[in-house]
């Protein structure tokens, strides 16, 4: 009796997984007719036990949502990238400096987003891009730190992401940052809340499957910040993590917490090889 149940289930889930995973296989993402985005690629070596292929969340979205990301004129996320371009050139803080005064054009930051979160030798800890931005604001500009995942920080992160679009995510998982990466991995596989689910329950075991009206993706973060049709604004990685953990009926961690920094590092590394895609469009 039970054996039949399990066998039937396994057959069914393989079938469902196979059909959904191949449904969008032909869709290709080329932004503005020129930036080629890798939305599927071989999984990085550290994931080889879990999956063969890593897939961008873009692949799992509807045709219409996918189309919005194909041209910057249709991608509402770019409005905030423009706002950030202004902030980039605006002096702030007691030293009267802007980002541009030290770094030149925002384009000079191409490739930076792809490697974050990463170890900061001076601070002796892993920094997310937002922490790094705040390091500049506080220590080099004499300005106030931006709140984690708050609009000014998200907008700037979107600008830095936009100039890296098309470049492969390449987060280092060894070296001094390894302990943080391990902590993130632990969190990824730890079940939480009254529903007792981990990130892996949904995004590793069930991507490609529908959960009620939602088409489960791999929960990759190469597309962050994401413009969501649901709340019509740019969303940060930590806010997304918080939402997913809340949905397990759990006590969440907060944006900017050590736990979410570690989880961001680990989840980013699961997307090594996918293109930086933010600001992306999701539902």
């Amino acid at each position: 009796m039970k054996t039949y149940g399990i066998a039937a289930l396994m057959a069914a889930s393989t079938l469902i997984g196979a059909t959904s995973a191949t449904a969008d296989e032909s869709a290709e993402l080329i932004i503005n007719g020129e930036i080629e985005i890798v939305t599927r690629t071989a999984a990085p070596a550290h994931l080889s036990d879990a999956m063969d292929e890593v897939i961008s969340g873009w692949v799992f979205r509807s045709d219409q949502t996918q189309a919005m990301q194909q041209d910057d004129f249709d991608n509402p996320g770019l409005i905030w990238v423009e706002a950030a371009e202004e902030a980039w050139a605006t002096p702030e803080g007691t030293n009267g400096k802007s980002c541009a005064d030290c770094h030149g054009d925002a384009e000079s930051m191409a490739g930076v987003k792809a490697t974050y979160p990463k170890w900061n030798a001076e601070a002796e800890k892993v920094n997310t891009l937002q922490m790094q931005m705040n390091d500049c604001r506080v220590n080099r500009m004499g300005a106030e730190a931006w709140g984690y995942d708050k609009a000014p920080a998200i907008n700037m992160e979107a600008l830095l992401s936009s100039v890296s679009r098309g470049m492969p995510v390449n987060v280092a998982i060894d070296g001094p940052g390894q302990a943080t990466w391990e902590m993130g991995k632990e969190l990824y596989y730890t079940r939480t809340g009254q529903l007792d689910l981990s990130c892996a329950s949904c995004h590793e075991e069930n991507y490609g499957n529908m959960i009620r009206a939602d088409h489960l993706s791999q929960g990759q973060i190469n597309g962050f910040p994401t413009y969501r049709l649901k709340n019509t604004k740019l969303n940060g990685v930590h806010s997304r993590f918080k939402g997913c953990i809340r949905d397990t009926r759990a006590h969440t961690y907060n944006p900017g917490s050590d736990e979410f920094v570690a989880l961001e590092m680990y989840v980013a590394s699961r997307g090594n090889g996918l293109s930086v895609e933010g600001p992306s469009v999701r539902n």
Binding site: T190, R191, T192, G193, Q194, D196, K242, I245, R246, D247, T248, R249, A250, H251, T252
Partner: peptide
């Protein structure tokens, strides 16, 4: 349960 929350409030 691990990190039991108050329903869906977080």
């Amino acid at each position: 349960f691990n990190r039991l929350g108050n329903a869906y409030t977080g």
